[in-house]
Each structure stands twice: as C-alpha cells, then as structure tokens.
Design a protein around this nucleic acid. Structure first.
Lengths: 139, 139
DNA sequence: GTTCATGCAAATCGTTTGCACAATG
DNA sequence: CATTGTGCAAACGATTTGCATGAAC
C-alpha cells in the first residue's frame, strides 16, 4: 500500500523567504480554504516570475512547521467501499489501512449544526486517525 | 471553485458487462477498501486485455447506482487551512465551499473506539455534507 | 440494428522534482 | 561562503477521454 506523504520531507533549518511569508499571510487573511492554484494566481501579481513549484514547496514547509493544515483525505488515490451502509472509518497513519468501524452512527451530531443559519445537512462522516492494532503492536 | 464530480456523468440505461460484474463481486469480497489499480491488477488475469479505463468507467457507474461508495475527501485537490486549532468542517455539495464550524470538538467520540482491540487513536475528523446557507436559499 | 461497453492510447490535472542561479544567514 | 529557496521545465501518478470495434438488448 502506498504512502500518504507528499513531496520529499524537508526539514529545518528554514530560511525566510518573501514568497513564503506572503503565502502564509494570504492564508491567514481568509477562511475560504484556498487551493494551491488560488495562491498562485493571487501571488503572481506580486511575483511575476512566481512558479507553482514554489507554492507547493512552501505549503509543504508551512505544514511541517504546523503553521497551516492541509485538508485532504490523506491519500492521493480513491479507495472504494462496497459497504454502502453508514459507518465510520479508522485510518491507520502508518500502513494506510482503512478499517470499517461498527460504532453506532451519531445522527445527533448533525443536530448541532445551527440550521437557524441556513445550513441544510444531508450526512456526515467521521474518520479516526491513529495506529491500527497491527501497527500499534509494532510500536 | 471547481467541481467535485469526476468523469462525465453517465446515466441509465445500463447494460450488464462481465467486467463490471466482476468488479462489484471483487469489491464485495473484501473490506480492505481497494484502489482502482488493485482491481485492475486482480482482474487482468481474467481479462488479459482489460484496460484501466474500463475499471474507472465501471467504478463511476457502480457509484451512481449506489452499489459502492468512493472514499475520498470529495475534491481532487488539497485545500489549505491556516486555522490550526481543532475544528470540524461543513462541505457544501453544490458550491464546494468548506466552512469552519465552531461546534465543540468531541473528544468523547474517540473513547468509543475499542482500545481493547488494540487501536491507538490520535485524532479524529468530522465533516458534514449538505448545502451551505447560500446554496440552500437558492434551492 | 442501435446503443452501450471495451481496449487502446493520448490527454488532462494536480503535484513533485532536477537543475542552474539567486537570496539568506 | 555554505546552504536554502526560486524559477523553469520536465516528470509523475491518478484519472479521464476520443475513437474504432465488440457486446448487449
């Protein structure tokens, strides 16, 4: 099974760069959860020669520094599930296994969403991350 | 913002095909949440000329028929978040907006996982799907 | 026989990387 | 000056698609 990790893991020390500072500032200026490409479009006005690779490299660094988070399922490829009943998943951070849990689904969670604000909730998903029994044993 | 939908939307009527039947059978035979490529590797023994495109086309059909589910975050590209405190997300199925919720995070959910079975839970994520206030108004 | 499904190959999309040069400490 | 960051372009991996042929109804 493949790994989750994207991009070669960079590590400290980090030097500052104008590009990275602007990327972080831009991300902090919005709560719209932008994409890499959105950052690229915005910033190439300031940095006419900006490269999309620079965006990705800096996103990687900022994530490692814990300054931003990446919202993604964790894997680059889709995983399929013939179990179409509602259920939650456990995702092993070491071996990437996805395990169906037979926890009771909590419809009550959806009631927490303020419908007064106009949200219309159709369903929800819960994923637990950690080590599966096999991997936990080896740690 | 881009759309979630992958592959041109096919619609009924569907004809049966040996390939699709085997794909569904294989998915039903396991709970390991296989990838498209896993199916391809398994099935090309039975169908020496099998094409990866056929796998993807049939996955699309099976999903539309509601016979299988796709486990993916919902988008093809990563979305970023400068809010690094724990929080849940609401994802609009129409406009793809991701909205930070200020619901209280439920550490109690993690206690439901049977640690007796050896799971080691580090964190969990909850996503609610539906229509955001803007899109709900238009529906 | 008409329409849908397949195989094949080329295309697309988001992301990553090798390299030579520029910027940082 | 030692090393990290950048821009550029090529490479990549997963997925999608156009087209001619084969299978289903």
């Amino acid at each position: 099974m493949a790994t989750n990790r994207k991009q070669s893991d960079r590590r400290p020390p980090y030097r500052r760069s104008k590009q990275r500072e602007r990327i972080l500032a831009l991300l902090r200026s919005t709560d719209a959860h932008p994409t890499a490409n959105w950052l690229f479009e915005k910033l190439k006005r300031e940095f006419p020669n900006l490269s999309i690779g620079t965006i990705y490299r800096n996103i990687g660094i900022l994530v490692q520094q814990g300054l931003i988070g990446r919202i993604a399922f964790g894997s680059t490829f889709d995983r399929l599930d013939a179990n179409v009943t509602e259920h939650y998943h456990f995702i092993c951070e070491r071996c990437d296994a996805i395990i169906d849990l037979d926890l009771p689904v909590e419809p009550g969670l959806e009631l927490r969403i303020p419908t007064s604000e106009g949200f219309e909730v159709h369903r929800h998903a819960v994923e637990f991350y950690g080590l599966c029994p096999k991997c936990a044993k080896r740690a």
